[in-house]
Write a protein that binds this DNA or RNA. Sequence first.
DNA 1: CGTCTGTCTTGACGTTTGTCTAATCAACGG
DNA 2: CCGTTGATTAGACAAACGTCAAGACAGACG
Lengths: 123, 123
Amino acid sequence: MSNQPAVLTLTDLNAAEPCCTPIAEQRIPAETAAVLAPAFKALGDPVRLQLMSMIASANGGEICVCDLTPAFELSGPTISHHLKTLREAGLVDADRRGTWVYYRARPAVLRQLAALLAVEAAA
Amino acid sequence: MSNQPAVLTLTDLNAAEPCCTPIAEQRIPAETAAVLAPAFKALGDPVRLQLMSMIASANGGEICVCDLTPAFELSGPTISHHLKTLREAGLVDADRRGTWVYYRARPAVLRQLAALLAVEAAA
DNA sequence: CGTCTGTCTTGACGTTTGTCTAATCAACGG
DNA sequence: CCGTTGATTAGACAAACGTCAAGACAGACG
């Protein structure tokens, strides 16, 4: 399963500090970029972006895979694969309750990514 | 060169409306996801994320390719390729002035992506 | 226990991506 | 007009990605 990446994860970084001056304010160090890029990469697929949106906006804060899969014209395994990618990027959490598996967004991580892209108001 | 995508671009979308309720508030339609995902994808590589940061935080709002290339242990063409990706994603603009080419960030687009990831304060 | 349903894993496939070298284009200076 | 320097394009190749069909695993229910 290897949900234990060898290096640093977004979660670690998040735990360590408020993290991350906006990229428009200060150049990102290579290590930081290496940690953050995978999160953006995970959002860089239309299906995953929609999945992320469905999960993040889910009523009650979570949503069943059984509600996600039929929203796409893709096979179950493919959706499962994309969900795994989001999980490994640290963007969502999953847990099984009985027959069904529910996914939940991780707001702190989303906020962190948003903060990174912040740009000062004036231009 | 096909800098004229067949469908909708991030720029178009940006021009059309303030655009985009945060993904945590409302499910993204497939068309919107298709337009936005490439921007995240472009940020999903450590080198490009660093490039983006260097460009966005550049003094005077722009930076020369000649200052970008030596910051990485990669060939010139490779950096050029990544810059093209950022350009085609609508994240940066470039223009040549004499011998050198300068890159500039597009703050409106960055802000838009940040807004998309916004999450309400409380949890 | 056996079987059904929901989810995930595996293995395979064609495509896309990141990188390089070599070649080309653009501007400046003899 | 030629040679030099900065930047991009073209072509090649290995690695990673998105997708699917088939199989495995987990719970529920007779």
